[in-house]
Design a protein around this nucleic acid. Sequence first.
DNA 1: TTGTCAATCACCCAAAAGGGGGAATATGGG
DNA 2: CCCATATTCCCCCTTTTGGGTGATTGACAA
Lengths: 205, 205
Amino acid sequence: MEIRVAIVDDHKMLVESLSKLINDSGTTRITAAYYDLQSCRLGLSNALPDVLLLDIGLPDGDGVDFCAEIIKIYPTLKILILTSYKEFNIAKRALHNGALGYILKNSMSEEVFAGIKSVSKGEQFLCEEIDILLKNKKNEDIVWLSNREKEILLYIADGYTTKEIANLIFRDSETVKSYRKHLLIKLNAKNTAELVKKGYEMKLM
Amino acid sequence: MEIRVAIVDDHKMLVESLSKLINDSGTTRITAAYYDLQSCRLGLSNALPDVLLLDIGLPDGDGVDFCAEIIKIYPTLKILILTSYKEFNIAKRALHNGALGYILKNSMSEEVFAGIKSVSKGEQFLCEEIDILLKNKKNEDIVWLSNREKEILLYIADGYTTKEIANLIFRDSETVKSYRKHLLIKLNAKNTAELVKKGYEMKLM
DNA sequence: TTGTCAATCACCCAAAAGGGGGAATATGGG
DNA sequence: CCCATATTCCCCCTTTTGGGTGATTGACAA
């Protein structure tokens, strides 16, 4: 039986050309294409595919968070991440949030076919690079930030000082100071500069 | 006469599918596909296409710098940037460095066909979003960093302090301090945190 | 109930960054 | 040769950050 696949990616160019490639295969069919998360939410409520090909850096949200959101509503949906993010913390969080597969965009298209087939049967599928990455860092913990921590990290990256952030969130400077310390420890950063870098890399803001 | 196009992009998936799409068009033909800059350098010296479809974030270098490098060797080559970077400073630098067109990956594939046709005739081609961006910020200056400035910015983002950087580059702390001040002014950042953020956004490191 | 953890606030002191000046040398293009 | 710019170094002083070591509340889960 034909596998029904929906794709969410803001790179219309890739969606177009990859859809064509997949549809020509016979065993698999692209039943829907979305360029953002909101239209995907609406689309899924109308027709649920077997597999969701999901990008991470979408214009209106984060694919990693979207995994957790959507798997709660559709627990049988198989999510296959298709992205160019190759950071441990991103891949690990995506899988933890309910994704069943993870493929990098620098893979060949055969990988996508193999991935779709695997996850549709309920089997995990990782492209080689990610598989190696996860094995090498299997003892590394996932970094999770609370909403408050994310909020403060964003303000820091925007150049606000401790005092300014305290005013913005109506809290004491000591509170913000405390958050900064925790952020440095959590992201294993030596100082604010590295904190911002790692925040970017881990896509935590 | 058929337009010969080479493509450089580390997203093999896109290269594969887009090549197929372009080759099916008839008027245009993909004569070569590269996944990194080094193989592109070698390939171009063997056979020069009319148009080079060039990504910016390549594994072994920066497409923006590559423009300047390659246009010196092949002044007649028409470079058409195909990327997802939508920052003013990146697009502006690419065009300044010799690119003749700039298309975002969230454009439809028709845009690529139109772009290839335009630049092959020597006409500039910008996708709508970039065209609007450049018009809105036409009075904004391009930010250029010297090699030393880039080097120091990288060290800053890696969490090194002024003193540590001074030791690493065998210079006085005062020298590094001076560079930090200049970097803050050039990137219009309030402090180090914002400096790192803007460095990332502008892809200056 | 107990324990964990997010979130809040506190004090002390050292280190680093930021902001204002200024200046010398070299280098490369017009 | 001149000018702009990159690169280097100097002094002053204020603000911000970083490191240590706490405490209290409330929520949620085992």
